[in-house]
Amino acid sequence: MPTIKDVCRHLRSKAAGPFWVTIDLFFDGPDNFAKYSESPALQPDRIAALYGTDARLVKRFSVASLNVVKISYPRTSPQGGMIERDMHCGQQYVRLLGVEL
């Protein structure tokens, strides 16, 4: 089974305001986008389980013209809070690298 790092040329995560995280998956071409963008591994329930959030709050957008899937979910604590470990959310994509599609 291919993993996300096998079929995406770039992944990034970033803060989407003080209460949300956004992850962008840039597939390496239209063929892999068409084949894997709707994978069960990229659906809200799986993302919610991976990031410890409510699946009903996970937002997912596919942008076929760019071969991109954008996933947003609420942060577990507000940006800049006392227990903040990744203020800009730049490392959150790492959990997805080994996910099988």
Rank of each mutant, 00 (worst) to 15 (best):
M1S: 10
M1L: 05
T3Q: 13
I4S: 07
I4M: 02
I4V: 13
K5F: 04
K5Y: 00
D6G: 13
D6M: 02
V7Y: 05
C8H: 02
H10C: 13
R12V: 05
R12H: 09
S13Q: 06
K14H: 14
K14T: 13
A15P: 03
A16H: 05
G17I: 03
F19S: 06
W20T: 01
W20D: 10
T22A: 07
I23D: 01
I23H: 10
D24S: 08
L25G: 06
F26P: 02
F27L: 12
P30F: 09
F33C: 00
F33L: 07
S37K: 05
E38D: 15
S39M: 05
S39G: 07
P40R: 05
A41K: 00
A41V: 04
L42Q: 00
L42G: 08
Q43S: 08
D45K: 13
I47W: 06
A48M: 11
A49E: 13
L50P: 06
Y51Q: 01
Y51K: 07
G52H: 04
T53G: 10
T53L: 01
A55W: 12
L57S: 07
V58N: 08
V58S: 12
V58D: 02
R60N: 01
F61A: 01
F61S: 01
S62Y: 07
S62E: 09
V63E: 04
V63M: 11
A64M: 06
L66Q: 15
N67D: 13
V68N: 04
V68Q: 14
S72P: 04
Y73I: 09
R75D: 02
R75I: 03
R75K: 08
S77M: 12
S77D: 06
G80W: 12
G80Q: 14
G80A: 14
M82R: 11
I83M: 12
I83N: 12
E84S: 13
R85G: 14
R85F: 11
R85V: 13
C89Y: 03
G90E: 12
G90W: 03
Q91N: 15
R95I: 02
L96V: 13
V99C: 05
V99S: 10
V99Q: 00
E100P: 02
E100F: 03
L101S: 08
L101P: 01
